[in-house]
């Protein structure tokens, strides 16, 4: 605040614009949560009263309930799988200098860069080809969906782990090695405990990215087996009522909890 001068019309315009922009980002979320408690049956203003029945109603709708469980299951399996693949990869990238390091890093981060709808379509067509060759069904199965979601989670695990390895003094590992511990012992007794916050955050971010994904999953889900964001999209295309806002509120709450928990392990302000 030091740099733009004292109270002047220019400064006031600037401050108003800043807060208006912040509101512009936050107001839609706040409105969603507000409307979820309206007692109006259809969307209208002003509220006739407030009620919590839409949350019960949302839970009683099969599409949302099963969508929630599927999303949860897929997000957990995918982030665990991404962790198993991501921890060794992060060690290689964070601790070694080797030929092709940049290339491997770029490929592993590419799921973040390649447009989700294009990637989703490519994976879908690939699954179909695979099925024609091998007679094993991948498209519209939970396994196929989980594999694709692991792809979403890998860049997050990698990014947060490499960052946490960079903050770790290699001298500590060296000391362990020179005192006679094997590489494996050093990893499990020294490195792993020290990068645990990074691992926790990586899994949480992987979970969040997978749980909220829409575009990559669109083509990969099967009839009667859709994830929560897709169930929400399908519903919203035909009607807007407090029930769907209750569902959105629940999703927002789950992700907010996951983010606040991960904020304890890695300060969000420093990661971004």
């Amino acid at each position: 605040m030091t740099s733009i001068g004292k109270a002047s019309p220019l400064r006031w315009t600037y401050l108003i614009f800043v807060w208006a922009t912040i509101l512009f980002v936050l107001v839609p979320l706040a409105t969603t949560i507000w409307v979820a408690f309206f007692s109006n049956k259809i969307l209208s203003f002003p509220p006739e009263g407030y009620t919590g029945t839409w949350f019960v109603q949302a839970w009683s709708l099969e599409a949302f309930r099963s969508g929630f469980f599927l999303s949860f299951q897929v997000a957990i399996c995918a982030s665990v799988l991404a962790l198993c693949l991501g921890v060794p990869a992060a060690l290689a990238i964070g601790r070694y200098q080797f030929r092709g390091r940049e290339f491997i890093n770029t490929v592993l981060m590419s799921p973040l860069m390649i447009p989700a709808i294009v990637a989703g379509s490519a994976i879908y067509l690939f699954y179909i080809e695979l099925q024609i060759w091998s007679d094993v069904q991948f498209a519209s199965t939970v396994y196929g969906l989980t594999l694709a979601h692991a792809l979403i989670a890998i860049p997050w695990v990698l990014r947060l782990l490499v960052a946490s390895l960079a903050g770790l003094d290699p001298a500590i590992e060296e000391a362990s090695l020179s005192l006679g511990a094997t590489r494996l012992t050093t990893f499990f007794r020294i490195t792993l405990p020290l990068i645990r916050p990074g691992i926790t955050a990586g899994v949480l971010f992987g979970f969040i990215a997978s749980f909220g994904d829409l575009e990559k999953s669109l083509l990969l889900v099967g009839p009667g087996r859709i994830t929560l964001p897709i169930a929400m999209l399908n519903y919203l295309e035909y009607r807007t009522d407090p029930t769907i806002m209750a569902v959105a509120t629940i999703q927002v709450l789950i992700i907010a909890i996951a983010l606040i928990v991960s904020d304890r392990y890695v300060r969000l302000g420093r990661t971004f």
Partner: peptide, 27 residues
């Protein structure tokens, strides 16, 4: 920072839903 990062992960569907309520004819 948290207020800006939170919406980043909320999923486009939930956030777009809010705009439907705001911009609808009865919104």
């Amino acid at each position: 920072i948290i207020a800006i990062v939170l919406p980043l992960f909320m999923g486009n569907v939930a956030r777009t839903a809010g705009w439907i309520i705001i911009l609808d004819n009865k919104g």
